[in-house]
Simulated assay, not measured.
Amino acid sequence: MKEFVTIAVFTYPHEIAILKHLLIESGINFFFENETMTAIVPMYSFALGGIKLKVHPNDIETVKTILKDFSSNTNLRIV
C-alpha cells in the first residue's frame, strides 16, 4: 500500500458510494483513506483533509477515465 497514490479527494462518504462500485466492477485495486473516520464523525473530513482515493500507479489512467465519466454522467451523481 505504500506505493499507492492519491488520485482524488472527496468530502463526504455519500460522494464515494457509486464510485466504489464502479472501481470494483473495473477490477481496480484501491482504498479510501479516512473513509471510516468520516463515516463516524462527518465533520472530521475537513480536519483529515478529506476522503482520499488511493490507487496503484499502474491504474492511474484507468481511474482518471472512470472519474471523468463519473463526474460527467448526471445519472450517477448523488448530489
Rank of each mutant, 00 (worst) to 15 (best):
Met1Leu: 14
Met1Arg: 14
Lys2Ile: 06
Glu3Gln: 15
Phe4His: 08
Phe4Arg: 03
Phe4Ser: 03
Ala8Val: 00
Val9Cys: 07
Thr11Met: 12
Thr11Glu: 13
Thr11Phe: 11
Tyr12Glu: 13
Pro13Cys: 00
His14Tyr: 11
His14Pro: 00
Glu15Ile: 02
Glu15Tyr: 02
Ala17Lys: 13
Ile18Gln: 10
Ile18His: 07
Leu19Cys: 04
Lys20Arg: 10
Lys20Thr: 08
His21Val: 13
Leu22Ala: 15
Leu22Met: 15
Leu23Val: 03
Ile24Asn: 05
Ile24Glu: 11
Ser26Leu: 03
Asn29Glu: 13
Phe30Tyr: 15
Phe30Thr: 00
Phe31Leu: 11
Asn34Gly: 03
Met37Ile: 11
Thr38Ile: 13
Thr38Lys: 04
Thr38Phe: 09
Ile40Gly: 05
Val41Cys: 11
Pro42Gly: 05
Pro42Gln: 07
Met43Ala: 11
Ser45Glu: 09
Phe46Asp: 10
Ala47Met: 15
Gly50Leu: 08
Ile51Met: 01
Ile51Gly: 00
Ile51Cys: 00
Lys52Pro: 08
Lys54Met: 15
Asp59Asn: 11
Ile60Val: 14
Glu61Lys: 07
Glu61Thr: 02
Glu61Gly: 06
Glu61Ser: 08
Glu61Ile: 01
Val63Trp: 01
Val63Ile: 05
Lys64Ser: 06
Lys64Ala: 03
Lys64Val: 05
Leu67Arg: 00
Leu67Gln: 02
Lys68Ser: 13
Lys68Glu: 14
Asp69Trp: 02
Asp69Gly: 11
Asp69Pro: 01
Phe70Glu: 07
Phe70Leu: 07
Ser72Cys: 03
Asn73Val: 09
Leu76Ala: 09
Arg77Trp: 09
Arg77Ile: 12
Ile78Gln: 13
Ile78Arg: 12
Val79Lys: 14
Val79Phe: 14
Val79Thr: 13
